[in-house]
Nucleic acid binder design. Sequence first.
DNA 1: TTCCAGGTGGCAT
DNA 2: ATGCCACATGGA
Length: 313
Amino acid sequence: MIAEEQEPVGKNMEKLVFEGVRDFDPDQIFDCGQCFRWEKQPDGSYIGPALGVVARVSYESGGRLVIEKLAGSRPLLEEEWRHYFDLDRDYGEIKKLLSSKDDILAEAIKYGQGIRILNQDKWETLISFIISQNNNIPRIKKCIEKLCERFGECIGEISCEKSGSSSQESVARDPVCRWMMPRPQVLAALSPEDLEDVRLGYRARYIIETARAVSADGGETLKRTEAMTSSEAYQYLTGLCGVGPKVANCIMLFSMGKCDSFPIDVWVRRVMSELYGFSESDVRGMRSFAAEHFGEYGGIAQQYLFYYIRERK
DNA sequence: TTCCAGGTGGCAT
DNA sequence: ATGCCACATGGA
């Protein structure tokens, strides 16, 4: 796989091109529940905040992945984006391995053949999945955007219209800011009342308490989690307020590269009961089955199953 | 009106 | 360790 970095064209324009990228479907990657801030554009590309910039991601079936910087002061670094999209992992091999485990998973993999697990920002993922608990995806997205808009720093301004808005006139609009997830120290200084208009409900307290715990050491421990073993990271995360087994596993899978993490939520319980014959309440059994049967790529298997059951409900 | 959404904290056994 | 249940919010 060859990556080529193009020189800036005009002011503040940068582009990263990866050729020969396989097992990559933007719709599946951005809409399989692992991230909440990438927005689909009318042309099929996605715009979102990541790695300190606002970027546009587009993919052609030939295997050409293009990342354009739309705003932000950070440069596009090939190594960072390669890691973000997990491009060094051979999903073809993993799919072959997992498909041989059982026919149910093989079917789910056929359905979500272009899924990849992102390596997202740990702090943003932590907060996002605290918000996700006992909540639905559209509202999770709204809460995150409101939280960022109200308390986050502006990454940069873009003039591109948001998807969904049916604008007949294609007049250039006023620049719109995209906002970062507010830093731990910022959220740590808030009180629940400050967060009222974000509509987080009872989760507001969890976020503030977790922000205080994380910022207590300047985020050093959270930063170190990637180098920890899965169980060390799990211990640290579940020690934070609002982080239980499910949320911890999501954070580990979607931001720390712990591919064996197997988050069990209502949808996975549904899969495991409807397709694998478990009792809905037997979370214990599901966990150990996943560890033994799916093995080191259990988390990736979980994503195929999650996407599969959710898309055909 | 009731039920549900990528669950967890707090409390009683 | 395990089993309940309250917890805000908004859409179906």
